[in-house]
Design a protein around this nucleic acid. Sequence first.
DNA 1: GTTGCGTTTATTTTT
DNA 2: TAAACGCAAC
Length: 682
Amino acid sequence: MDLATLNTPQREAVTHVAGPLLVLAGAGSGKTRVITFRIAQLLKTGVDPRHIAALTFTNKAAGEMRERVGEILGNKSQANKLTMGTFHSLGLQILKEERKALGFPRGFVIYDTSDQLGVIREILRRLRDGDRRYDVKAILSRISLAKNSFISPDEYSIGEGDEYDEITAEVYGKYQSALKNFAAVDFEDLITEVVHLFENNEDVRARWGAKYRFLMVDEYQDTNRAQLMMIRALISGSNNLCCVGDDDQSIYSWRGADTGNILGFEKMFPGAKVVKLEQNYRSTPNILEAANAVIGHNTDRYGKTLWSAHKPGQNITHVIAPDPGIESRFVAQEIDKMCKDEQWSWKDFAVLYRSNLQAKGIEEEFREKQIPYKMFGGQQFFERKEVKDLIAYLRVSLNPRDEIALRRVLNYPARGIGATTVERLTSFAAGHQMPLWNGIVRVGELDGIRPGIKSAISEFTELINKLGIAIESGSPVVAQTRDLMEKIGLIDDLRSAAPSNKAAQQRIDNVEAFLASLGRHEVKKPGKSALLEYLRNLSLDSNDDEDKEVGNSVTMTTLHGSKGLEFPVVFLIGWEEELLPHARTLMPQAMDIMDMDHVADVSEERRLAYVGITRAQKVLYISRSVARIVRGKQVPRTLSRFLTEIPSELIDERDIEDELQTPVEAEELSSFFANFASQLDD
DNA sequence: GTTGCGTTTATTTTT
DNA sequence: TAAACGCAAC
């Protein structure tokens, strides 16, 4: 480790030891180096690794950080003793260790977003049976924000709120007690319960406050209020806090991130030192100048000016296309050409867009031209319903109170227990004030359920009980799971339910991949409590196996998904008003659904534009269409305001109206007529 | 319990 | 425009 390889502000940050420090790390300014060097430096000066904690937002980031510290030190075992993980994993660790003080049950489970939505749907069903359709996600979003702001169900005001506040106020309290009844905690609880515990139990707070003498936080601009409280408690014994982030790259306020945390750092932590990392090692000066110009239009920022020692580089190409089809074709054609004529390869390129919708046209063109690509984002992971179903069986057998998991598998695969039966069971259980599971077990006492269904229910409970007992007694879990799959005919069901053979095989592969992962874990740590642990971590790790390995292919992702990545050549597509900035942030009715306190504003959209521009190392294209079909109607489009914020001397304009000699294809003709017809409709 | 049809609705998604 | 969803009919 050679401190001389760092620039002056980097070195300042690395060698800072005591007291609060905020490192404002511009895009491409060597942030990771600073964090890892600083940890290594602390260790070198004799700090015990068990006294250092570093918090990130992803497990991947934490893992990479640990690895790099190990490399710098040439000492892996030192690095392994560091506390490095996500806010949520540290929260979980604390909750586990303090389980008794909290009064949590032994096998409490973690509810992920889809479980949370399930809870709310269930409550809504009972509260407003079919009365109206509510946007369940909007309600969840409000509950999450309330929890993260430490607003209790009682305090949740109905006063001047809109109708969503009313329904949320009704649901919130029920939601909390449901989680308690199900022996579950949600993502928010992993942070807020820790904070509550620290507030209510001075001994516990003092113990944890003394445990970490140095705390580091990465991506600090994305922290929310609850996370800030957790940070404050954790450093209460030392005050040695180092936060690294970039206020200009704060793009998750809609998820509850509070930019006030970074902007108010000095007020919150008196005596704080602030270091700005402005030298950029990634992009050409032209690209940086454009980025600086755009972000300069935002107020409420610390203010940084990125600079580079590189040569100016080429101008940005502003591509004007008649419509998105031609825009896409241009992107594909240009990438193809550059790959053939010059020494670029596929992996050097990225196409970035505001919304996933925009990816479709690009994808089509890539397929047509046989350009290899990898798409990130979207819903890939959520789609693994088959895996979640299987996991739900394991969850129920470990914890029959887990009602969401129970409901998920009660009639899956179909065994004749329909909605009516489930409703009967639910009200029976509710009438006796017992968990749904107990009601199901005592189905014999219920009249009016057909004997066939009753026996199906008994078979089901027996199935779960047996699995539970087998796991309890230490029988190998993978073997037991396979046995279960056999009994319930899971594979057959996947085959028959899938729309195609290929899809069926994919689903079976997913299940197999899960079993393999379960097996790997079991070899290392067998037993029931290890399984519980595995399942808990699973919900905190969702993206782990689908990491951003590109191989040699073009990357396609959203602007959000691109944060932290870099590419030699970047295409930013669809720079039009109402796409970037997105219409939802421009329209007042966006307030309907979004939380009043978190209405996305144009400055966050501008930060997204900034993130996009700063992904590019050498070559940057920004494209837009003059017209596009929106909601089935052809509409003219105006260029994004952010494009006009880039000084024109940095831009070469390229109108491709006639440039691409496109063969007139049947498809185009038909779309022409479709547009023509839709215009006639008006 | 499944299928099909008509209706509705269209950001972003680290845990 | 298209895909996702709810509801009604089988």
